[in-house]
């Protein structure tokens, strides 16, 4: 559980600032640089995953409570299936080319 019930919500503010930084970083990479498309995609994709993790841990406290472990496994599994669905669909629907 969250220990610090009083005072300034430090983790929230840090989380917020970091998410803003990550968002603008992604924007910068996408708009301002002239890297190849695949590289950009990998960079901004990774930034998105980091930011999602940030939300899940710093705002949603995914691993807290007596079922923290179940919740983490559940989200990881959901994410895994989503990745299989997206990557699998892209690969298969390009007819394996």
């Amino acid at each position: 559980m969250e220990k610090n019930h009083k005072g300034f919500p430090v983790t929230h503010v840090i989380g917020f600032i970091m998410s803003l930084v990550l968002t603008f970083a992604a924007l910068g990479v996408a708009i301002k640089t002239s890297l190849p498309f695949k590289t950009i995609l990998w960079i901004i994709g990774s930034l998105a995953v980091v930011q999602a993790g940030l939300q899940l841990y710093m705002f949603m406290h995914m691993n807290e409570g007596e079922d923290g472990k179940s919740q983490v496994i559940n989200v990881a599994y959901g994410f895994f299936i989503a990745v299989v669905t997206v990557a699998g669909s892209i690969w298969v629907m390009s007819f394996g080319m």
Partner: peptide, 23 residues
């Protein structure tokens, strides 16, 4: 906990929509 499981399902739901969009 039940709501977290539901969110797991939502991840897959949006994942599928992303898959459709990607294709």
């Amino acid at each position: 906990l039940g709501f977290w499981i539901f969110l797991g399902a939502e991840i897959i739901l949006f994942g599928t929509l992303f898959a459709v969009f990607s294709v």
